[in-house]
Simulated scan of single mutants.
Amino acid sequence: MRKQRRRRSRALVGAVAATAALGVAGCDVVDGASGAPDGSRTHASRAVQLWDRSPASIAAVGDSITRGFDACTVLSDCPEVSWATGTSEQVDSLAVRLLGRTKAADHSWNYAETGARMADLSDQVAAAVVRRPALVTVMVGSNDACRSSVRAMTSVADFRAQFEEALGTLRKALPKTQVYVASVPDLKRLWSEGRTNPLGKQIWKLGICPSMLGDADDLTATAVLRRDRVQQRVEDYNTVLAQVCAKDRRCRFDGGAVYRYRFGTDQLSHWDWFHPSTDGQSKLAAIAYRTVTAKNPVD
């Protein structure tokens, strides 16, 4: 009996020590081998523990939306109203909301380019990593669908490979930098809202998103099918963004929030009735802030 009690005592001490060791390891256990012997710890629980809801610096990559195109003057970038890194009080960008207006000016950088497609993202990321940002924001894909024709749109397979390449570029340089990924907007809704404005339709003829906006008043079966195919490609792109992001423990997708947002005429540029206005940029900033600061990732 005395030997049995000693064995039970040693076993209890060992269990307590093991528990204490796991407690000290904390997130390191999650980062490496799973704390659960059967690997049952979910991706969601790992992401919650790894995610910093108050990153100290931000770099933005993407396309004309992140550059504030047509928000201030016609056919021009206006990065000061960018939803991601702008300094305008009309917008209160993600950087301002996270860092404060003074710090945002020195700790946020905008590497987005008007006209950029997913194929351009890896080079933008390569430029951004020099700043070693704590958070990288991604909004890209509209120009992959907004091509001269449906046939010219980026294939879903290429879109996936290019996004994976861009994340790979980031991870090689900055394995712990967080990533916020915005969904591609609902281009068909933007067409539906903007086509009510004669001035906007004249601007569209200059070449803004011809696959969706071309012949804006054409409601024939052929035109409807063309727009539906563009819309389906946008939805496929968003599926890719969600799937690729889900494989990275430090990546958060917005869960389709930008795609679902019902942009009205107040949220559209009064220069082209397609890109976000300053009010639209503010709405995008609010969506990003909710996603970045949420306790749990969006499903």
Rank of each mutant, 00 (worst) to 15 (best):
A15Y: 10
A221W: 06
F274R: 02
Q49R: 13
R189I: 04
G39W: 13
L268P: 00
T239R: 10
K103V: 12
L190F: 04
P133T: 06
V140Q: 03
F274W: 06
K172W: 06
D254T: 06
K247I: 09
N110E: 07
K188I: 08
W109C: 05
A221I: 11
S142W: 04
R132L: 05
A15E: 06
D123V: 11
A157D: 13
D217C: 06
G141H: 03
F69K: 01
W51Y: 12
A161M: 08
A166S: 11
S148K: 14
V298L: 10
R5L: 14
R117E: 10
A25W: 10
L12Q: 12
G26V: 08
R8F: 12
T222H: 09
R101V: 12
R233P: 04
D228P: 00
V156T: 14
S155I: 07
A56E: 12
T177E: 08
V74Y: 07
V150R: 02
T154R: 12
V61F: 04
S149D: 11
S54G: 09
M139V: 07
V179H: 02
M153R: 01
E235P: 01
L22Q: 11
D248V: 11
G32V: 08
V234T: 09
G255N: 02
C245N: 04
A246P: 04
Y180V: 03
G68I: 00
W271C: 03
T42N: 14
R252P: 01
C27H: 13
T293Q: 11
R41H: 05
T102I: 08
E164A: 14
Q281D: 11
P198H: 07
A145H: 03
R229D: 08
T196W: 10
N238G: 07
R262C: 09
R10K: 13
L241E: 12
I208D: 02
V184Y: 03
V298C: 03
K176Y: 14
E193M: 07
T19F: 14
T220A: 11
E235Q: 15
V240C: 15
A56Q: 09
A128M: 04
R46M: 02
P55M: 08
A71D: 06
A134Y: 03
R6Q: 12
L199G: 09
A242Y: 05
I203A: 02
V292R: 00
K188V: 05
D77W: 00
T196F: 11
T102P: 01
G200H: 05
A145I: 14
L187F: 05
Y289W: 10
V298N: 13
A152V: 09
E165A: 11
V61G: 03
N143H: 13
F159C: 08
T87N: 13
G256N: 09
R151Y: 09
V136L: 15
S76M: 07
L121H: 03
V13P: 02
M1Q: 09
P37W: 15
N296S: 13
Q49E: 13
R195K: 11
G62I: 04
R290V: 04
C72R: 13
H107T: 06
G35K: 03
V224E: 12
W273Q: 07
G256I: 11
V136Y: 06
Q162N: 13
S76L: 10
A126N: 12
Q124W: 06
S9N: 09
S108Y: 03
I58P: 02
Q232T: 12
N143V: 08
V74G: 00
C72M: 15
M118H: 05
L94E: 00
